[in-house]
């Protein structure tokens, strides 16, 4: 049984992807720095990506699960984070008079959302809800490639497709009609480190930043994973040898 089962399992692995493929849209596959068992985030790209988020996306999209203190992962030090947090206004309270008040943000605060609630967000965007971006890179199939493809995927609609008002044509979006207008055109931001802000660079930087936001423990996960897999591989070999030693006298 074992032999046939192994053959069976292997053939499943081989034909599985072929059966699973056939999605509606072609995504641009990129060689992200965080791919692979030793992958890490590119801090400079994440900082640039954060700048793009702040200056372009943050007007509509919240990032509710990210706190300012988390930006230490991007390479900012304590005082930079403090200064950054202080640039935002946060509602707090109630105070002793029973009233909510506005104060400057502190590192422990989460990023404030552009809209007070989902309904307000819908009302401000023609009925479409701009999704929270904290987890977007994990909440879409092939997250990073999808996000990149979407950001660079705004094209003129083919002549046989009519695009209704308030909708835009996008290559990577399922159904091709998306309610989000093209966010990036190139040179939308001025990078402090002098990197050319082309649409491809900005899209890749933003994707890098969003992947970190969705999976901030990725680097630790892979680092620990390599050690654990190494340990267990040795354990597998040792246990096979030990088993054969113990079974040597069984006929």
């Amino acid at each position: 049984m074992i032999r046939y089962l192994i053959v069976f399992a292997l053939s499943l692995f081989l034909i599985g992807p072929a059966l699973a493929a056939g999605g509606a849209v072609e995504l641009t596959k990129r060689d992200w720095s965080f791919n692979g068992p030793f992958g890490t985030f590119d801090k400079a790209a994440m900082q640039r990506g954060f700048q793009v988020y702040r200056e372009v996306c943050a007007g509509c999209h919240s990032m509710k699960y990210i706190a300012f203190r988390n930006f230490a992962d991007l390479g900012y030090n304590e005082s930079e984070i403090k200064a950054l947090a202080a640039e935002y206004e946060v509602e707090d309270g109630p105070n002793d008079d029973g009233e909510m008040f506005i104060r400057a943000g502190i590192p422990a605060d989460r990023m404030p959302s552009p809209y007070p609630n989902d309904n307000a967000a819908r009302a401000g965007n023609g009925g479409a809800l701009p999704p929270d971006l904290s987890l977007i890179a994990k909440a879409r199939a092939n997250g990073p490639d999808y996000l990149y493809s979407l950001l660079v995927g705004y094209k003129d609609a083919p002549s046989d497709t009519s695009v209704p008002d308030g909708m835009y044509y996008n290559n990577a979006y399922s159904g091709n009609l998306i309610a989000m207008p093209q966010p990036l055109y190139g040179d939308d931001v001025t990078y402090a480190d002098g990197t050319t802000a082309s649409i491809e660079v900005m899209s890749a930087d933003l994707t890098q930043f969003l992947m970190w936001a969705a999976e901030p423990k990725l680097e630790a996960r892979k680092r620990i994973g390599v050690a654990v897999v190494f340990f267990l591989s040795v354990f597998v070999i040792l246990s096979i040898l030990a088993k054969r030693r113990v079974w040597a006298d069984v006929h």
Binding site: F235, S239, I240
Partner: peptide, 20 residues
């Protein structure tokens, strides 16, 4: 001991899934 081999392989595969 034979189960140990199975457990070792099981944990290795689980670790690959969990971490990667």
């Amino acid at each position: 001991m034979k189960d140990m081999v199975g457990i070792a392989v099981f944990l290795l595969l689980l670790a690959i899934a969990v971490f990667f």
